[in-house]
Amino acid sequence: MDEETVEETSTSMNGGEPKPNIAPEDTPNQEKLETDRAIEMRKRMESWLNQPMRIQMTDGRTLVGTFICTDKDRNVILGSCEEYVNPPDSPEKEEPRVLGLAMVPGQHIVSIEIDEASNSLL
């Protein structure tokens, strides 16, 4: 996933955001569907909260931490965050640098991964 697609999705969503959550009963079917989707997505995202997350940044660094917070612009806050300089699949063993609480601006995010192993434990 590269930055261009990110831009696209976010702008298209900007266009179609006539506050679907406020009065769902009065809205037409099309919008209701969208609202349902929004609620579902939100639930999914909430399920990721406090899960281990791995983010790759545009400058090649990888951050591993606990997903704590995000907003519309995909700015992500990771708790107990650790920084790796080498790419994750590189053979070189690397000790991470501990960052603590870190905010990754959405525009610098290349990819986001969630840990399935810890998800299945729950």
């Binding site: 929004a38 997505m41 939100r42 990819s111 986001i112 840990d115 192993a117």
Partner: peptide, 28 residues
């Protein structure tokens, strides 16, 4: 770890948030 890429899902979900809205746990 068993990392699973959720970039696109995440992007879409985040875009549903309102401007200025933060998604977070109650303690944060």
């Amino acid at each position: 770890r068993n990392w699973k890429n959720i970039t696109e899902e995440f992007n879409e979900s985040a875009s549903h948030l309102k401007l200025g809205e933060l998604l977070h746990d109650s303690i944060f």
